[in-house]
Design a binder for these strands. Structure first.
Lengths: 365, 365
DNA sequence: GGTCTCGGTGTAATCGTTTACATCCACACG
DNA sequence: CGTGTGGATGTAAACGATTACACCGAGACC
């Protein structure tokens, strides 16, 4: 592979000049420049990234640390990160599937020096510990709904508001006894969705009780299993808010097997709007989360920090809005939506158009 | 950030000794070693990856180049890559969502020097062009079913065999007129699946005709649209093999809207076994592809090349087996599967257990 | 007691860049 | 015709590691 010296020699100039050409520093006469470029492309020369990084202390690479999360969520977020990074000329060093905090720490440490910044998503309550310590001193952006990490920027989903809005919707349909299937107790998003559920009920003074809060862990089987407890409740709730769509899949299946009709006997609502949601029977009403945007915003904030001339700027916690996607599983769409819409190829896919848009961007600063 | 010099000074040794400690080169007395390690951890020292790479010419990073593909496929493959890479102590530099060949080329060029090897997935026929030229001289492993790229290793799905097996299954159910909805004409996997479809029909001398080969592009809408042509066929086929599950989703919806019962009036089969497949109504019979394994194997081959003591080894084209997942959309499972299996929580999820396992690993060497 | 061997250690060159500083040259100006 | 100016270029010192090579001292051996 050709080096800067080869180019300099062939072009009859010094390496400093070649360097200047490749860094657009001006100060090089146009004739020299074109000569250098010609030689460079003839030799298939490209500046060595490692040597460059060594002296400039910048790698043009951003680290991404993700937990082992579900396919659909994962790919949405990472696409947002990826597209944004490439547009800005940055590379992405990704590392996902971390189970414990130790794995996370060692992954972080081994990234040290390879990256100019870091996006971290670690929804387990305790795992956020001392990321700063492991990571060296690059800027960090969290994809995390907590605002108490005042030393980092963050981007998050409006879990509380989304859950609350969905519960309010169920209430508006006349339900007064609404259960929930919650996520892992240590998961921050799960906690916030539970909080949103409670807040929604509190507002109208509907029945509130621990009885109605069923345990789950964001997996489909846990949703399936929760249904036994749900149906055992006496009096039986008429609706259930499930804290993510994966569990809702399990809930729907269990209800079908138990002969409980949805939405007539039991209204069901989910959270996330995964692809599958619209193909369930009945199609699942859910809270839509823009996963792409989540990744894209996180990366933009990180880049902003990375090149900041004014690094003194206060840290921001940005919250992305969610929106309700009302399909048939909660019962309200039946009146609105005629059974057949043959003339309209993507009615199901286009359910966003019938959705109630809830909450616009709320940026706290 | 502490450098090797700081550690050397504090520990009262030379930088060579510190270096030897951190490279497990032996030749250092145990007392010196422990002293150095103590100082290093006190100073929070870790060798600078860039400086290291500059002189050793190894980055401990592998590049991953993916097209802009559908969420579910993508995340499966990348998990396989990621998990394997981390286990082997390598980082992953990913770049996806490339539309044209130019984008691919520039992405490749900018990775030059940052990686020790490359995994490329570029299913469009022409895009494989001169990857070697862009990429520098690191080893490359393709995720690609073609075997004509004799200068690289490759890992692929058994498209032909999978499609053929599914068609044979439909034939065994008594269907004699089987249509197909094909993928993009430039896509290699799509071509191979079409070839498999044809081969399956040829074998038993069933009806073969261009009429029966409907155009699609792997997207859901294209599947939906293909149904118009399908139903217009006279005589109408009794079964359709759809070249991927996304299109099959569209096909099923269009058939439902047209009042065509599946599988009674029309049997439907897909390819890929995406998550959604089992939740469609009726649940989709399809050809299962192990996406995780696809990524994992590709990475293993790449690592093998990367550290190869014997680089002269001939290039291999590895083909991963597929398996049939028979659900209800093709009609055969109805007899086997009792409608209710309440006692068995994950019957639907566990449909692999009822699947006919087709073709074991075939490694060509 | 010399010499050989060998484990432990240090010195210095090297990897391929960027960049501060020095130098050179042409030209304008008084 | 000196001198100042400023653009174009070159020289050389970093950046932080690895590693070939030299060196040194302590036993082993004769």
């Amino acid at each position: 592979m050709a080096t800067i010296k080869d180019v300099a020699r062939e072009a009859g100039v010094s390496i400093a000049t070649v360097s200047r050409v490749f860094n657009d520093k001006g100060l090089v006469s146009t004739t020299t420049e074109s000569q250098v470029r010609a030689v460079a492309s003839r030799l298939n020369y490209w500046p060595n990234a490692m040597a460059r990084s060594l002296i400039t202390n910048r790698t043009h690479t951003l680290g991404v640390l993700l937990p082992d999360l579900h396919g659909e969520f994962f790919s949405g977020v990472i696409r947002g990160l990826d597209v944004t990074a490439r547009r800005e000329g940055f590379h992405l060093l990704v590392s996902s599937s971390h189970s414990g905090i130790d794995e996370l720490a060692s992954a972080l440490r081994s990234m040290r020096g390879r990256i100019d910044g870091l996006v971290v998503m670690a929804p387990d309550v305790e795992s956020m510990g001392s990321i700063r310590g492991w990571a060296g001193d690059v800027p960090i952006v969290l994809i995390d709904p907590r605002t108490e990490f005042t030393e980092h920027d963050s981007v998050a989903i409006a879990n509380v508001e989304g859950a609350q809005a969905m519960v309010q919707h169920l209430l508006s349909l006349g339900h007064r006894s609404i259960a929930t299937v919650s996520g892992p107790v240590r998961n921050v998003d799960a906690r916030q969705r539970l909080a949103g559920y409670r807040a929604g009920l509190r507002e109208v003074g509907a029945e509130r009780s621990r009885r109605l809060e069923l345990a789950g862990d964001f997996t489909e089987p846990s949703g399936y299993q929760a249904v036994a407890a749900l149906l055992a409740l006496d009096p039986r709730p008429t609706a259930v808010f499930v804290a993510n769509d994966h569990m809702a899949v399990g809930v729907l299946r269990a209800l079908a097997e138990a002969g409980v009709r949805v939405p007539d006997d039991m209204a069901v609502a989910g959270f996330d709007d995964i692809e599958t949601a619209r193909y369930l029977s009945p199609p699942l009403s859910t809270v839509r989360v823009d996963r792409f945007q989540l990744g894209a915003r996180a990366l933009q904030r990180l880049l902003h920090r990375t090149r900041a001339g004014a690094p003194a700027e206060a840290h921001r916690h940005e919250v992305l809005p969610t929106s309700l996607v009302i399909r048939q599983s909660c019962g309200s769409a039946r009146a609105i939506t005629p059974q057949s819409r043959a003339g309209e190829p993507f009615a199901a896919g286009g359910s966003m158009t019938t959705a109630t848009r809830e909450r616009r961007t709320e940026e706290f600063r």
